[in-house]
Design a protein around this nucleic acid. Structure first.
Lengths: 346, 346
DNA sequence: CATAGGGGTGGGAGCGCTCCCAGTCGTGAT
DNA sequence: ATCACGACTGGGAGCGCTCCCACCCCTATG
């Protein structure tokens, strides 16, 4: 172990600031200034230092820098492990990609933290309390998760990927669930549907509630009643969608359109519709939410509401960076537009 | 900026080793020994130190540790960004989950690095040359990627997620593509199919080649001919699958089963079969590979070969950790079993 | 012609840890 | 009783950087 370290260690002689300074014929401080882009360096000196850096292939030692400057140049992306499945498949990778894009311009590193068990959650809290990142990106937090409060308390910059309620105190990025749902239902109205039902997500999730609001708004705008028996709550799962659809058919057999608050639930609903001999879209129009791979591969392909996930990731990172740079108490809330992707199911 | 740092900085008075030592009435070295689990500490002392650590809520400063010990306690997961899409959706998140599980036990952090452009690739190389991670996990590298060689040269522990060829010099973890394909085709044989075609991935990819080998082996074992016109090369895309299937129907209209080397290609093939009025599975049996969300949601649901992706991630991390601990020149190759998931398409 | 001002620069003093050497004990063997 | 030897322990010497203060020299000013 010890030996191993030594072997890979200093041997290679990775150049240090001091060596660059010697090579360039200047002092350590000056090289540091050049590296960090300080303006207080003459052009001649700067050029000399840059040449030395290039010749020696100097790369600053991050640990030393972090220790001396008391910052880490790293942010953490915290993902509740149980959620990675729940979030429609592409979600995770797309968020990461967006975050990565925003960070590519900077020196910031991205630390990935999966939080599974409660034990791991405590470990993470410990970890964060050690101030080992400059900020945190929170994805898929439950309303009752203690993490946001903890971070708030530590006074650590945080951005959350979907506000937990109307008065989310943390900076957040969200897609426009309301407008997305409204557009979806308006589309059904435009298709001549009159008995439009919805299968909702769990209503203690803010986003799910907003989608229901959008559904109601569109019906109101069309002068259609939002009868209670047309609203069937579920839990974002396929099985839940199946149950909710069965309920709907029992309670309101005249239903001619369904807006499901997720593609996965739409898929469950689709199965029940088929079992009951209802054709899609002839008898019943079906719309999902997320525009996931499932939507594209359903039969018929599912009309769905697309969220700009990658862009959301990018926005989260940018928001966080700006909070780290200027920790003002402003807590911006960003809402990005959704887009209706029309396919054969409507 | 500067101000910000100071504000979040030392103020809070995060306890240091020295303070813990004072509190426990011992020396700095002793605390360090306890923290690092050295056996050379008496039980009494250890208990005292542990109490002090708990009381003060001490968390070691990672940067200081890294600087002093010349190691980073971090590994990088490098993902070519262009590939994240290519890898069937759940792939990425599942690998990450597996890696996370293996790392949860340790102090190692996971750094996520997306490599998009060539510019970023060069940056990464720079980065790695700065020895800022203890090891690297490589996912989805192309056969012509220069990264593996660079790492090899830097003598940095690496594990790759699918060997690039028979004689992959790096430690690697792979699923048993050969056995998976063979099992799939054997299943078709068992179903009484006699004219079994395959749609392959790009044959410069080792895994794709292995799947083709498995196909051939199963046919040989069944005493069936592997006629050239039954082998249709594609590129892992849906459109490629569509084209390949169209070709097959033109060249070998008698085909009664198709083994596609990915679910996405199977989905393309399915569309063409439908357009040609071939029923699945009555007229043509169809099998995919990956067992992705697409497979579960196709109509009919697709029989597919499941890879233990999460387990692969776990194995990769474990392999890497052991290489970091003991950098022997042994380059293990791990091959994990696949599993045939039978659904209605066969 | 002395004297402030700067812009530029060098290098000391840490940051919080690990490594390791020089102890200080206590114990069993002689 | 004496000696050798382990088991533990304390603390010095860095690790490579940032921060900052002191300093230099050159130009404008009184």
């Amino acid at each position: 172990m010890r030996a191993a370290r030594t072997v890979r260690g200093r041997g290679a002689g990775r150049p240090t600031l001091e060596e660059v300074a010697a090579r360039a014929g200047v002092g350590r401080g000056t090289v540091s200034r050049v590296i960090n882009g300080s303006p207080r360096v003459s052009d001649r000196t700067r050029a000399a230092v840059e040449a030395a850096v290039a010749e020696l292939g100097y790369v600053p030692n991050r640990a030393a820098r972090a220790l001396a400057a008391n910052r880490t140049d790293a942010i953490a992306l915290v993902v509740p492990e149980t959620e990675t499945r729940f979030f429609a498949e592409p979600y995770f990778s797309e968020v990461v990609r967006g975050v990565g894009q925003a960070l590519a311009e900077t020196e910031m590193q991205l630390l990935l933290t999966l939080v599974g068990s409660d034990r791991e959650r405590r470990r993470l809290a410990q970890y964060l309390m050690g101030h080992r990142v400059d900020g945190v990106l929170l994805v898929g937090v439950h309303a009752d998760d203690p993490l946001p409060e903890l971070l708030e308390q530590l006074d650590m910059p945080v951005v959350i990927s979907g506000p937990r309620s109307e008065e989310e105190p943390l900076a957040s990025v969200d897609s426009d669930n309301f407008a997305g749902a409204r557009a979806a239902v308006a589309h059904l109205v435009a298709r001549g549907r009159r008995s439009i039902a919805t299968i909702t997500g769990p209503l203690d999730v803010y986003g799910a509630r907003r989608r229901l609001d959008g559904y109601r708004a569109a019906l109101a705008e069309a002068g259609l009643p939002a009868a209670a028996q047309l609203i069937s709550p579920a839990d974002f799962t396929e099985e839940g969608g199946r149950r909710a659809m069965a309920d709907l058919l029992a309670r309101a057999p005249e239903v001619d359109a369904v807006f499901a608050a997720s593609d996965v639930m739409a898929s469950g609903a689709r199965q029940v519709l088929r079992e009951h001999g209802r054709r899609v879209p002839e008898d019943v129009s079906l719309i999902g939410f997320d525009d996931s791979a499932i939507a594209r591969h359903m039969d018929p392909p599912l009309t769905s509401v697309r969220q700009p996930i990658e862009e959301m990731g990018r926005a989260m990172a940018q928001l966080l960076l700006s909070q780290i740079a200027a920790p003002e108490p402003s807590r911006p809330r960003l809402v990005l537009p959704t887009e209706l992707v029309v396919r054969a199911s409507t």
